[in-house]
Amino acid sequence: MTRTGVRADARIVARADGRGGTALPVLDGSGPLAPRRTRGNGVEARVVVVGAMSGPLGGDRFTLNARVEEGARLHLGSAAATLALPGQAPGEARYDVRLDVADGAELHWLPEQLISATGSDLRVTTMAELAAGARLVLREEQVLGRAGERPGLLTTRLTLRVAGRTVLDQQLSCGPGAPGGWDGPAALAGHRTVGQLLVVRPEFAEHPPAPRMLGDHAALMPLPGPAALVTALAPDALRLRRVLEEGRALLG
């Protein structure tokens, strides 16, 4: 790695193949981001992003772009957890995810957990741009520190736009250097993991799901548009995943 850090990009385009399935005319990656097609179910294409190197480290810049065209279905995940580590290059690391879903298309973005290790400084931005008739299932899970260690500084921003309208734009900062109170009773309250599940379905515009609690530290909330959000806290990654999967089952 150089003093300026590593630059890595991945591009994925999913397109209906005209036979009831989904083709992948673009499946490119560089450096640490290596997208690989796996076995799908005939209609849906499946892609796993493999981490070919450690990171992101300080100074790294990762970008992942996925576009799902009309009539296509894509299931996109990662092969393993992403581990944010301190690096030799100065400054924060960045991981930018851009998702673009057309009318009549569907995307599931379900990466494994993001772990913020001591001394790391990572900013993650996820922007989902959907047409009015698009469908999306998006899961984010953050783990604050490995076992027995304090976390690094982690800032995440999640933005959803449907038919040109902003439906959700939220940011969370945790760890040393984050705004005061991030670990207090009004925020994480000592929990080590936090996660979001975002589901967009056109039918939610007319029939939104009812708000409800999912245990003591998770809630399902309809958003002002064809979307719903589950936000959860948990003491560990296993229990966080269980709560988010419960929300996913409720939202279909």
Rank of each mutant, 00 (worst) to 15 (best):
T2P: 07
D9H: 14
R11H: 13
I12P: 00
I12A: 02
V13N: 05
A16V: 01
D17Y: 01
G18V: 03
G20W: 00
T22E: 07
L24P: 00
V26L: 11
V26W: 05
T38K: 02
V43I: 06
A45L: 01
R46D: 03
V47R: 07
V48D: 02
V50N: 09
F62L: 12
T63D: 06
R67K: 11
R73L: 00
H75M: 00
G77V: 08
G77S: 14
G77F: 08
S78G: 07
A79V: 13
T82V: 15
T82K: 10
L83P: 08
G91N: 07
L99E: 11
D100W: 10
A102G: 11
D103S: 15
H108R: 12
L110K: 00
L110M: 14
E112K: 12
Q113D: 12
D121T: 10
L122R: 06
M127E: 14
L130E: 08
L130D: 04
G133E: 13
L136D: 04
L138T: 05
G148P: 04
P151K: 12
G152S: 10
G152W: 08
L153R: 15
R157P: 01
L158F: 02
V162E: 02
T166S: 04
Q170K: 01
C174M: 15
G175E: 06
G177I: 04
G180Y: 07
G181F: 03
D183T: 12
G184M: 02
L188P: 01
G195H: 09
L198G: 08
P202G: 14
E206D: 15
P208M: 03
P209H: 10
P209Y: 10
P211Y: 04
P211K: 07
M213Q: 12
G215W: 06
L220Y: 05
L220G: 05
P222L: 06
L223G: 09
A227I: 06
A228D: 12
A232W: 15
D236P: 14
A237C: 05
R239H: 14
E245Y: 04
E246M: 08
G247Y: 11
L251Y: 11
